[in-house]
């Protein structure tokens, strides 16, 4: 498709991703990918400057999977996310300013400063939350799908998790339950090759996470996780299958995080060459090149998207910096729905 003439219009010969998504939808997807990237770069910068504490797990390099998976979802569909979840959050519709406020531990944050980077959630947009426990979201998404089925809705639950989580019992129990009960859930593995420092070669009995799908009698699909079109097309098929009541799908997005696992990572377990090789396959320029080559966008469109995202990030950062600190007396607020003795 990269050899398509410059001025080509969206037509029937194009792959479904470009044929089925309007220019506005594609623009929004690109904007979100930039938002995720800029959000994380700003978050990292804030940490280095001592403006935030704790830790964070950056998904830089994985934006195509976060946005490709979420772009076709409804507000009433659910996602469960991971410790590397900023992209999922923005993808599902969260606003950067409330995410920054959470980073800064402010009352205006999505979790009122109680959750931080690792627990950002936005139930309003169907985001049931990031999770600090590897594999923690797998049973939760399965349960959300069970609720959807119980309530006779045609929504879906989408579960993001990493390659590391596929070695947890929670993964295996959840996939089995979803298959036995034919639940409307899509399991999305973002395989970035490492569970912290341990590579999938050293931790998995099979080469691909998707190889585990047949054991649970569901489709297992492998996609180039750095190519948003690949991701979104596989997701569209899985979502439709789930909405039709035909059960779960496992999608494996092969991708890479170009930053370390968290702030403590010194990258001792991988080579510079490997990192550079993946950086050359950065999903954002890859998507932009396709959009330009196909004549869907001109450079000015991309510049406008960038400027828009940049403004949202800057405004969001400033909003959060001026947020309200919690008061110590409120440490037990919201442990229970009603105060208990």
């Amino acid at each position: 498709m990269n050899s398509s003439p410059k001025k080509a219009t969206i037509g029937k010969n194009q792959r479904p991703f470009y044929a089925n998504n309007s220019a506005a939808a594609l623009k929004e997807a690109l904007r979100k990918m930039h938002l995720v990237r800029m959000f994380e770069e700003m978050a990292e910068d804030s940490y280095i400057r001592g403006l935030t504490h704790g830790t964070m797990h950056l998904s830089i390099g994985q934006e195509a999977s976060a946005v490709g998976i979420t772009m076709g979802l409804r507000k009433t569909d659910y996602i469960t996310s991971t410790h590397r979840g900023h992209g999922h959050c923005i993808g599902k519709g969260a606003e950067a300013k409330y995410m920054f406020a959470e980073f800064f531990g402010k009352e205006e944050g999505y979790c009122k400063g109680r959750g931080g980077s690792m627990h950002i959630a936005d139930p309003e947009t169907g985001n049931l939350g990031a999770n600090g426990i590897v594999g923690g979201g797998l049973p939760l998404a399965t349960g959300a799908a069970l609720a959807i089925k119980q309530q006779k809705r045609d929504d879906v639950a989408v579960c993001f998790f990493g390659d590391g989580a596929s070695n947890e019992g929670a993964f295996h129990e959840s996939l089995n339950l979803a298959a036995v009960w034919k639940l409307p859930v899509v399991y999305v593995c973002e395989n970035n090759g490492y569970g912290m420092s341990v590579s999938t070669d050293r931790s998995m009995s099979v080469p691909n996470v998707a190889d585990r799908a047949p054991a649970y009698n569901m489709p297992g699909v492998i996609v180039d996780g750095n190519n948003i079109a690949d991701v979104a097309e596989a997701m569209a098929v899985a979502t439709e299958r789930a909405r039709r009541g035909e059960g779960p799908t496992l999608i494996e997005c092969k991708t890479y995080r170009t930053r370390g696992h968290s702030r403590s990572d010194r990258n001792k377990y991988r080579t510079k060459e490997e990192i550079e090789e993946w950086k050359a396959r950065d999903p954002i320029p890859l998507f932009e090149k396709e959009l330009l080559d196909m004549g869907i966008f001109v450079q000015a469109d991309i510049d406008a998207v960038l400027a828009n995202a940049k403004a949202e990030i800057e405004d969001g950062f400033n909003f959060a910096r001026g947020g309200t600190d919690p008061v110590p007396e409120d440490v037990t607020r919201d442990v229970y729905a009603r105060e208990i003795a």
């Binding site: 469960t80 049973p139 939760l140 998404a141 349960g143 609720a147 119980q150 929670a170 089995n176 339950l177």
Partner: peptide
């Protein structure tokens, strides 16, 4: 509504939690 589950305590406990959060 009276569901026999596989013997999978972690998965079913989590499914119960997820269903609760999703309105059941």
């Amino acid at each position: 509504r009276v569901m026999d589950t596989p013997i999978a305590e972690l998965g079913t406990a989590g499914a119960a939690v997820g269903a609760a959060v999703a309105g059941s």
